[in-house]
Write a protein that binds this DNA or RNA. Structure first.
Length: 493
RNA sequence: CGGGGUGUGGCGCAGUUGGUAGCGCGCUACGUUCGGGACGUAGAGGUCGCAAGUUCGAGUCUUGUCACCCCGACCA
């Protein structure tokens, strides 16, 4: 009954539709009047803000500072780094004019042809170019290095097909852009940020990830090495959750950013860049949620606990409210966020279903029965189990429960990933196994040609070359040539 | 850009051979309810995506146009 009313497609029926339904029904985001651009609604944005706050803290803890660079980039900047322009030119929004005027021969406005820009501006698809053009003026000596800057921004990539959070024409992200005196230091930075991302994904989002490097085919346009964290969704498809790039001296050369080192030698500056986006919202949703709705990790839930009063009249409500006030104070003192939903226009049953759909980790229900016995009903979202417990020391009980939920959903996701990760040794077997989804650990000869062939045959790509784990060499499953280690193949979002 | 689909109250939809627009949810008021999406009664709300055309008459037929969604190619 309740399920039908939610009108949420089940995952088994149509995973893709389930995801779309869930984003809408849980009130996270919706499509806007602008093609491919979404409106992030308050509940969805609250989760994003939680992510931002934690990531921002982690960035600052690792020595970074925030700054802001322009939304617009002169068109000529983009073409200065060859691979970079190749990667982004096809999906850029371009500003050509700066004024509109009334249409002389009709209604509405037209672009004023008089107001054409000398040089077109592109809306940033990423900010390497404008930032490195700026860094040129900031850096003269090794004493000016390193520069460890991050910016929180929106970027635009004119994607042909979009999906809420997973791929939108405009999206929110952070992009770190660092400049270093040595290759080793820039490389170390790129690796460090991969670890920061992995830490965040696993310990806050509860999303297990595999750390690795990208193959040349999948590398960022302009990077020498791309580090990434790869997650696996419940339908067996992979999702790239974050990337960190070692850019070498490519952008320094493109923008002529040099410095004088300790021995008075001129050299180009070494760079890294790294980013995660609102796509993480998609990863979060698809990793934990179920057919009843969203399941949020306690560390990122807009509110961790919701309290639903059950009453027949004003007197009962006031007795309950008095009791609830002491519970709220106790929870808040422990740093637990709580919402008391005493809205009189919705019934308890409605609220139960609603908060389940919205993934609130813990729900407390309290009625006359509980007041009499000094108890409260505790329902946890991840397991959908309920129990009635004593109100005494409820704050400790809830604090432990939230930790338990955080741990449990991570473990569940990890168990799933482990269960669908397997070694495959022949290409014939690969073609069969890839249809079942999951991560396939295979030997590959390291060439772009072989990777391309596999992609054409099976739509599977190398998600990453794992940094941790088995490093035993072998032979490529396609060509039989030597392989340094197994790499992870999957179909990806 | 190819293929498919949809545009009708806020949302989801129906609308027969062309005859002047309806259902469910939601919304408003009042009452009864309240431990898993309550019920009754009474209401409000639509130039049917847009533009031409055919016709006495168009939500319905014709042509054009716009938008959005889904599936591919491209990508975080």
């Amino acid at each position: 009954m309740a399920k039908e009313l939610k009108e949420l497609t089940s995952r088994s029926e149509n995973y893709s539709q389930w995801y779309n339904d869930l984003v809408i029904k849980a009130d996270l985001a919706e499509n806007s009047a602008v093609r491919g651009c979404m409106v992030i609604k308050p509940y969805g944005y609250a989760i994003w803000e939680k992510m931002q706050a934690e990531l921002d803290r982690m960035f600052k803890e690792t020595g970074h500072v925030n700054a802001y660079f322009p939304l617009f980039i002169p068109k000529s900047f983009l073409s200065k780094e060859a691979d970079h322009v190749e990667g982004f030119a096809k999906e850029c929004a371009v500003v050509t004019h700066y004024r509109l005027k009334n249409n002389a021969e009709g209604k509405g406005l037209i672009v004023d042809p008089e107001a054409k820009l000398e040089e077109e501006l592109i809306v940033r698809p990423t900010s390497e170019t404008i930032i490195w053009n700026t860094y040129k003026n900031w850096i003269q000596s090794y004493r000016d290095l390193p520069i460890l800057v991050n910016q929180w921004a929106n970027v635009v990539r004119w994607e042909m097909r979009t999906r809420l959070f997973l791929r939108t024409a405009e999206f929110l992200w952070q992009e770190g852009h660092t400049a270093h005196a040595t290759e080793a230091e820039a490389m170390e930075e790129a690796i460090k940020m991969m670890h920061v991302y992995a830490d965040f994904a696993e310990n806050f989002m509860g999303v297990p990830v595999i750390k690795g490097t990208k193959s040349a085919n999948e590398r960022f346009a302009g990077a020498l090495e791309t580090f990434c964290i790869e997650a696996l969704m419940q339908d067996g498809k992979a999702l790239q959750a974050g990337t960190s790039h070692f850019l070498g001296q490519n952008f320094a050369k493109a923008f002529d950013v040099t410095f004088v080192d300790k021995s008075n030698q001129q050299d180009y500056v070494w760079a890294s860049s790294w980013g995660v986006s609102t796509r993480l919202m998609g990863a979060l949703i698809m990793t934990h949620s179920d057919d009843n709705g969203l399941v949020l990790p306690p560390k990122l839930a807009p509110f961790q606990v919701v309290i639903v009063p059950i009453y027949k009249n004003e007197e009962q409500l006031s007795v309950i409210t008095e009791k609830v006030d002491t519970i709220i104070s106790a929870l808040k003192a422990k740093g637990i966020s709580v919402k008391f939903d005493n809205n009189d226009t919705k019934k308890p049953g409605w609220k139960f279903a609603e908060y389940e759909l919205k993934g609130v980790p813990v729900r407390l229900a309290i009625g006359a029965r509980d007041i009499e016995n000094d108890t409260i009903e505790v329902a946890r979202r991840d397991t959908l189990t309920k129990e009635t417990v004593s109100i005494e020391n409820i704050e400790n009980y809830i604090a432990d429960l939230l930790n338990d939920i955080q741990q449990n959903i991570f473990q569940k996701a990890l168990d799933y990933r482990v269960s669908v990760t397997r070694e495959v040794n022949s290409y014939e077997e690969f073609k069969i196994e890839i249809e079942k989804g999951g991560f396939l650990l295979c030997h590959w000869d390291g060439t772009p040609e072989t990777e391309e062939k596999i992609k054409e045959d099976t739509k599977a790509t190398i998600r990453c070359i794992p940094i941790e784990g088995d490093k035993t060499p072998g032979v490529c499953m396609v060509t039989g040539k030597p392989s340094a280690q197994r790499v992870i193949f999957a179909r990806a979002y």
